[in-house]
Design a protein around this nucleic acid. Sequence first.
DNA 1: AACAAACATCGTAATAATACGATATAACGA
DNA 2: TCGTTATATCGTATTATTACGATGTTTGTT
Lengths: 112, 112
Amino acid sequence: MGLTKTDLFTKEQNELALLAKAFAHPARVAILQHLLKANTCINSDLVNELGLAQATISQHLRELKNAGLLQGNIEGVSMSYCIHPENWNKVKDLFNGMFNKIQQGAPKDECC
Amino acid sequence: MGLTKTDLFTKEQNELALLAKAFAHPARVAILQHLLKANTCINSDLVNELGLAQATISQHLRELKNAGLLQGNIEGVSMSYCIHPENWNKVKDLFNGMFNKIQQGAPKDECC
DNA sequence: AACAAACATCGTAATAATACGATATAACGA
DNA sequence: TCGTTATATCGTATTATTACGATGTTTGTT
């Protein structure tokens, strides 16, 4: 036990869950929000900004990159990160595909 | 260590992360998708639908309820769950507030 | 070449999440 | 009342996440 049963679910369900997991830590939300403002940043910017250790920031950046939300470019001695625009919009559409499935004028006493 | 440093982040960042965590498991995504279609369901529906144990489904339902995404009503001997419409729309707006902050016509070589 | 700056990765301790059997509770029907 | 049905909760084994010091690697500088 303790292991998510991935095979029980659809590809879309697993994909959505993995993406949500990328957003599921305040440090990663903070990194994304910082990037939305600043466009670009490096590891040490975030260490100063957030107050977490360098190794911790690096780990969060890797997870965001693995999820496809960020891309990184070598910029001299440092690593420049930014949001991956295409993927960002795909993720946005994927979430909204779910968010918008709700019936707005739902029958009043259908449920709760 | 191993404990998220909530105090380092803003209220919004922590709130977004908590909500994302609710979406961060394929079983919970599946439950939400089922509810978007069926409007209403009970625990045992989901046990049949998803193939997880009753206790596991109950646990996932509680997490979705705690996150404010679901509401539940006693319906005779069973518990009827549905999506919480107001909160659902609030969550949608919260996520889109982030998703839409990206500059669409971003400068080409600004970053990556 | 030697040093510094910027990161990534490793190792690991602490904590959280996942899954489910077992058990408790509450409502309905015979 | 007694049994059945539907769930919630408890306990717990397993796995995943989080955080950071230590160390390695790469690039630029003197």
